[in-house]
Design a binder for these strands. Structure first.
Lengths: 124, 124
DNA sequence: TCGAACCCTCACACAAATGTGAGGGTCAAC
DNA sequence: GTTGACCCTCACATTTGTGTGAGGGTTCGA
């Protein structure tokens, strides 16, 4: 598929898809005419990138952890330097913290909404 | 306490504290000499702001949901317009999605780390 | 009274993610 | 063979969260 279709299917602008590629987050083949060509798996990949980006991780980090999240897990022992492992552990912990923080705050928002609803229509 | 102490206790630069104030995320009193003065609760507040920021929420949104997360919950019925409630519900759902996404990816990283460790020292 | 260590505002700078548009190819359908 | 819908690269613009520094007060201890 070409960039237009991928853009539509992922809800991501063409500009951004090119940017992600430039940042090494996604890859594409090139047709003879120079057009980018993507396969089906790119849809998921873009979704993953967007999710991580939305979660606050910078492309720099995403680029490093993405290989570890590939579907048919291929362990990249070459990449598994101590530094890389340390980075991964660190990011894993940060992700846990973030997730818990988000859930706590989400619960607080829920509680607020419940309270407001319980008083709906009641006098202040 | 003055900005320097708050900065140290929260690990946040003075510059950023002033920025958060400018964005309406934290408040401060002013001493006669013009210095900002914070009370104890500011420490938590700053932590909360940083956490939400780190989770990827923009100051614009944080500013709107913070009042609902205050400790001694004071329901701001005035703020509880239908738009506000819709925003909150939306953000709550987004936070849930983000958290789940983070946890899923964290698990994937953990799995990767486990695999690498299981093969530690083994031939490739 | 001098200097160090604070504080203030203002303003320019920067990186990251993203938008927008210019200038220009490709290709299919009419 | 022209038009419209794609695609390309390049490059400048904008927003957000930050850093940094200039220029200038306040406070306090040596």
């Amino acid at each position: 598929m070409r960039i237009g279709e991928l853009s539509e299917r992922t809800g991501t602008s063409r500009r951004l898809l090119r940017y992600y590629e430039e940042q090494g987050l996604i890859v594409s083949q090139r047709c003879e005419n120079g057009y980018r060509s993507y396969d089906e798996s790119s849809v998921d990949r873009v979704g993953q990138v967007r999710g991580l980006l939305d979660a606050g991780l910078p492309t720099r980090i995403i680029k490093q952890i993405l290989p570890c999240l590939d579907k048919p897990r291929v362990i990249h022992f070459r990449d598994a330097t101590p530094e890389m492992l340390a980075l991964l552990e660190h990011e894993r912990d940060r992700m846990t913290e973030r997730a818990n923080f988000l859930l706590r705050n989400r619960d607080a928002i829920s509680a607020y909404l419940d309270e407001v609803r319980a008083n709906a229509g009641a006098p202040r």
